[in-house]
Amino acid sequence: MDLTRFQQQLKGTSSKARPLPPVEKWDPDFCGDINLTIALDGRWFYEGSPIGRASLVQLFASVLKREDENYFLVTPVEKVGITVEDTPFLVTQWQKEKGERTDDDVFTFTTQTGDEIRLEHAEQLELRVPPKAIQDPQATPIPYINVRRNLWARLHQNVYYQLLEHADEHANESVTSFSIRSSGKRFILGEVAR
């Protein structure tokens, strides 16, 4: 599989002005794996070299598909397997939009590929234990956010710590939890045993 040919097949399928391609409807034949890796730090590598063009990474991210635990880049005619070390996306920025009331505030997250996610539904955020290479000694679960189509993002460590500064603390007999409110709902960022 040639990455340049794959890029040519995608010309015109996605742009900031148009919605994402309907990859969930595309079911081409599997053409094999390519040596493309999304690293733990969110960088994309092809043949061991980083892909430096942000527009190219955004294009490939727009046609990313997950089936079970496997990741693929798909076009209407080809499907190639890639390696993802944890999640394909990394949340690198966040902002809090003020509502009329505190309960109306909305947190919006931005990934390394420019995807924006408004935190509005409970199923958008879940706590997971990250890969061993980046977990703490207690294997503490951290927040992951659903970007789209069963594709998830991990919060960059800086973003996570910044959010914890804004979090509310709730304690009971067994745990202390830290949460934020977005779109009128409570989202737990982490829990510590007491």
Rank of each mutant, 00 (worst) to 15 (best):
V106D: 01
S179A: 07
D29W: 06
T111H: 08
A171C: 12
P50V: 06
A171D: 10
I117L: 01
S62Y: 03
N150Y: 09
K79D: 10
Y46F: 07
R43G: 12
L155E: 01
V77E: 14
V175I: 12
W26S: 09
D103A: 14
L155F: 03
R66S: 10
V74C: 03
W152P: 01
N158P: 05
F89G: 01
D136E: 00
S49Q: 14
F89T: 07
I34P: 00
Q7M: 11
I51F: 08
R194Q: 10
Q157W: 03
R53N: 12
V175G: 03
D105N: 13
V175D: 13
D105M: 06
L127E: 00
Q157T: 11
D86W: 10
P141R: 02
V77I: 14
D104G: 05
G114R: 03
G12K: 04
Q58D: 14
F72Y: 13
F30R: 08
Q162L: 14
E78F: 10
R148L: 02
I145Q: 01
I142S: 04
I34L: 00
G99K: 00
G184V: 02
V175P: 11
D168I: 12
Q58K: 14
D103N: 15
D168F: 10
T113Y: 15
S179W: 03
Q162I: 02
E120P: 02
D168E: 13
F187D: 03
L73T: 02
W152Q: 03
S15T: 07
T140V: 00
E69D: 15
T37L: 11
D2W: 06
A133Y: 06
E165I: 09
E97Y: 06
D33G: 06
D104C: 07
Q8Y: 11
E116Y: 02
L20F: 08
Q138Y: 13
E47F: 05
E78C: 07
E47R: 15
T37S: 04
D105R: 05
I51K: 08
E116C: 05
R118P: 03
T176S: 13
K16V: 15
I117D: 01
R148G: 05
Q95T: 13
Q93D: 10
F45S: 02
E24W: 07
Y71C: 00
D103G: 12
V80R: 02
L155Q: 01
P137S: 07
S182K: 02
Q138M: 15
Q157E: 09
Y161D: 04
V77K: 15
S62V: 02
K11S: 09
P141E: 04
